[in-house]
């Protein structure tokens, strides 16, 4: 009897932890809806148009965060994701705005090639040679950012080709943002692969214990390398979505996306220690962050204060994670 009670309790605790971000989102919705009503006497927060806004703002970040959370599951992380996005976007935009531009398709392929190059460099350094991910990807972060500034001379490039407008500004049935649909589909695929396939299981194993995975015949280097490659692909794609939504490219595109990806992952229940958590949680983590800041903006809170709050949310999420782990052991 004792054990059934305990397991029921632990099931509830596990559910609460698994869905912490969703519970958080619901709480935020309730709080901001009430605040909006109280402050303005009218509902500005809980409206479809505001929610569309939130979805638009979340999509690109959330797409990059898929890569980051899979990297985290595999026991790594990539600090260059944001600036890699910036570099590929800047190269892409520059080529698109050239006097006799190449076909758009070729340019987009080139963007992915550059992203893959950066991803491979990260992968070779970390997975093959064994440079700490922290240092390796911090290095490539600077290289990407520097190159992006060199190429654009830090001048923003406006007006992206109309052929890619649908990606970031298109709507399905005139109501649902295309990029939000893409985000949900990508998360569904990522969630399926990480939980239902051999590749996913092995990523968890490698992240849970590199050594034990190796001694189970898993090619640890291949999996580590693969996650860096995946991160670079998703980051480049996130860049395309972002340049389409903003209809411009600047060297600030993708700034801090790598960290936002980490924060979203942690809020979504992915462990920094690797091998634990669910990719789908990261989407809710990213939504949570954006709903929070959307609400704050509506309440008229200074945007500079928002960075402080982001820090507090991150520290709180990690602290809760650590406390949870300590209790268990």
């Amino acid at each position: 009897m004792d054990t059934t009670k305990r397991s029921a309790k632990s099931v509830i605790a596990a559910l609460a932890k698994d869905w912490m971000s969703v519970v958080g989102i619901i709480l935020l919705l309730i709080v901001f809806t009430i605040l909006s009503q109280v402050k303005f006497g009218e509902q500005y927060f809980l409206t479809w148009s505001n929610f569309k806004n939130i979805l638009l703002q979340t999509s690109a970040i959330a797409i990059v965060a898929i890569g980051q959370s899979i990297l985290l599951l595999g026991g790594n992380f990539d600090l260059s994701l944001g600036r890699m996005l910036c570099l590929t976007s800047c190269v892409g935009a520059t080529l698109m705005k050239a006097e006799n531009p190449m076909p758009l398709g070729i340019i987009i392929i080139l963007m992915f090639v550059i992203g893959l190059c950066v991803g491979s460099i990260n992968g070779i350094m970390v997975a093959v040679i064994g440079v700490p991910a922290m240092i390796a990807t911090l290095g490539t972060q600077y290289i990407c950012y520097g190159l992006a500034k060199l190429i654009t001379q830090a001048v923003p490039i406006p007006k992206m080709p109309s052929q890619i407008a649908w990606l970031g500004r298109g709507y399905i049935f005139g109501q649902i943002p295309v990029c939000a649909v893409i985000m949900v589909v990508l998360y569904a695929i990522a969630q399926f692969i990480t939980t239902k396939t051999k590749v996913g299981r092995n990523i968890y194993a490698v992240g849970g214990s590199k050594e034990a995975a190796f001694f189970s015949g898993i090619n640890v280097k291949k999996y580590h390398f693969g996650t860096f490659i995946l991160g670079s692909i998703l980051s480049t794609f996130g860049g395309l979505v972002l340049m389409s939504r903003l209809n411009s490219v600047a060297v600030t595109n993708g700034q801090n996306y790598e960290f936002d990806g980490v924060i979203s992952s942690i809020i979504g229940g992915v462990s920094l220690a690797g091998g634990k958590g669910r990719v789908i949680g990261t989407m809710f983590g990213a939504l949570f962050l954006n709903i929070l800041f959307n609400g704050f903006s509506q309440m008229g809170i200074d945007p500079f204060v928002q960075d402080v709050l982001k820090g507090i949310v991150l520290v709180l999420a990690v602290t809760l994670d650590v406390i949870g782990n300590v209790k268990k052991s």
């Binding site: 239902k196 396939t197 051999k198 299981r201 092995n202 968890y204 194993a205 849970g208 214990s209 050594e211 034990a212 995975a213 190796f214 001694f215 189970s216 015949g217 898993i218 091998g275 634990k276």
Partner: peptide, 28 residues
């Protein structure tokens, strides 16, 4: 350290080497 992924379940550790045996059309 080397024998088991400590944070994985008994089930998942058991199938870690021979995962292919429980895979049907690409899915575990």
């Amino acid at each position: 350290l080397q024998g088991l992924v400590q944070i994985m379940t008994v089930e998942k550790n058991t199938t870690l080497v021979a995962l292919d045996k429980v895979i049907r059309s690409g899915v575990i």
